[in-house]
């Protein structure tokens, strides 16, 4: 009976997914202490940004960057840094009073 095998596979996958999601929800609670510690770090060191992309000023500190930074060197210049092409230039958008 192939349908029994199919239903079993689907059930196993659903159970795995449920276990992962429940584990995730549990971990999110457990990580709360770490998040508190990170918030303390942000507050104490007066940090403003996540340390993800360190290749350019406007990718290291997206919230602090000059709003002209991308494409600033000369007209028609291509993007200098790969991460610049996957970050949105949000500053410009918000400065113009854009809504989310």
């Amino acid at each position: 009976m192939k349908y029994r095998l199919f239903i079993s596979i689907i059930m196993v996958e659903i159970v795995i997914l449920a276990i992962l999601f429940i584990r995730g929800a549990g971990l999110a609670g457990k990580y709360q202490k770490d998040i508190e510690a990170r918030r303390m770090l942000v507050s104490t060191l007066m940090l403003t940004d996540l340390s993800i992309w360190t290749e350019a000023r406007y990718t290291r500190h997206p919230s602090q960057t000059d709003i002209f930074s991308p494409f600033q060197d000369y007209p028609s210049s291509i993007e200098h840094f790969p991460a610049g092409s996957i970050l949105s230039p949000e500053g410009v958008y918000l400065q113009r009073g854009g809504k989310k």
Partner: peptide
């Protein structure tokens, strides 16, 4: 590799599983 771009210093992600 795609996210990293030209960053030499790039963090290893240990993300909280928010769903």
């Amino acid at each position: 590799p795609a996210l990293k771009g030209w960053s030499v210093i790039f963090p290893e992600f240990r993300l909280v599983p928010y769903i």
